[in-house]
């Protein structure tokens, strides 16, 4: 059984020109990324700002054009589809956006927003049937049907995001890409939305691509996690209790602020800033901040290779097993804060 989505060597650069005569600088957003999304799974993509995860989300749906590479959805090669065919395929792959306010047209009522996908795809419903469909959708996402006539500015953040989720479900998609759907919500609302997404996935047999910067959330919610750094996937690991093998993943995990005062870290695990995506180094992108970096790391870019069942790492020197005190591992970063500002 083929995977629902197969991404191979996906690339996306942007050319940025300061002025008409300046040389164009190349911003590498996504750099030779390959992975699969299995049917019915929840794949999480984690990374910090500039790692390319939002760009990747849009590339998977071909909302942005890739510079190179292949995207296969259910066996269909998206990059070769005409605009018209692509639009007809869209109902099967939908997106939930990060900012629930700006992703809803402020002049449309909830009802208008939910009926729009149908009219775009040329499906027209009688008024009564439309109203019923809207009611049904609203109750699926836990909203009162009275909210159908409300405008986005009258709803709370959580309610708006539920509308965004309902909109993504109107056309009964197979794949739902969620781009940081809870980032702008309060913690308690986030928990509600996550619980909703869990139940929807089970009920409607959906496949999720879940983008987030919150490693704890992704570990809780997803089956597998892909970690991105500066446009590349550095590790793909099963979510459940797997020891990370890439140094960046380890740093991310240790940087997370655990809400438990008995487990305090005395220092930050990782120093320095992320490098600019304008100047991706040859070799491993993380080498400049990595304690285990060697000469090889600066020269040859590590490929994503199988480490264990379902666990892939792109590293020349993966983290050794049983690191009892990960702190010592980051000796270099605590005594020698290396920093590189942007630009």
């Amino acid at each position: 059984m083929t995977a629902l989505v197969e991404i191979r060597r996906l690339d996306r650069h942007f050319e940025v020109r300061r002025s008409l005569f300046a040389r164009a600088k190349i911003l590498t957003a996504v750099n030779q990324v390959s992975f699969d999304i299995e049917r019915g799974e929840i794949l999480g993509v984690v990374g910090e700002s500039g790692c390319g995860k939002s760009t990747l989300a849009r590339l998977v749906l071909r909302l942005i054009e890739p510079t190179a590479g292949s995207i296969r959805f259910d066996g269909i090669e998206l990059t070769q589809l005409s605009d018209r065919h692509l639009r007809r395929l869209r109902p099967r792959m939908q997106m939930v956006f990060q900012d629930p306010y700006s992703s809803l047209d402020p002049r449309y009522t909830v009802e208008d927003t939910l009926l729009e996908p149908l009219s775009i795809q040329g499906i027209s419903l009688a008024r009564a049937a439309a109203r019923e469909k809207v009611s049904e959708l609203l109750s699926t996402v836990g909203l009162a049907s009275a909210l159908a006539r409300a405008y986005p500015h009258q709803l709370s953040g959580g309610q708006r995001q539920r509308v965004g989720i309902a909109r993504a479900l109107v056309l009964s998609p197979d794949l739902v890409v969620l781009d940081e759907p809870t980032a702008s919500l309060d913690v308690s609302v986030q928990a509600q939305i996550v619980t909703l997404l869990e139940s929807l996935q089970a009920k409607l047999n959906l496949t999720y691509l879940f983008i987030s910067h919150d490693l704890a959330l992704v570990s809780y919610f997803c089956d597998r996690i892909a970690v991105m750094y500066l446009g590349s996937i550095v590790e793909i690991l099963p979510a459940v209790r797997t020891q990370p093998k890439h140094h960046y993943t380890l740093a991310l995990m240790e940087s997370a602020l655990i809400p438990d005062p008995r487990r305090r870290r005395p220092t930050a695990p990782l120093a320095g800033d992320v490098l600019s995506p304008f100047a991706i180094p040859a070799g491993c992108a993380f080498a400049s901040r990595c304690a285990a970096a060697t000469h090889l790391c600066g020269v040859e870019r590590p490929l994503l290779k199988r480490y264990d069942q379902g666990h892939l790492v792109a590293c020349h020197h993966p983290v050794a097993a049983c690191k009892s005190s990960p702190q010592s591992h980051f000796q270099r970063s605590t005594t020698d804060d290396v920093y590189r500002p942007y630009g």
Partner: peptide
């Protein structure tokens, strides 16, 4: 970002 957050807080 998460890693920078940890640095700034410490």
């Amino acid at each position: 970002d998460v890693t920078v957050q940890a640095q700034v807080l410490h």
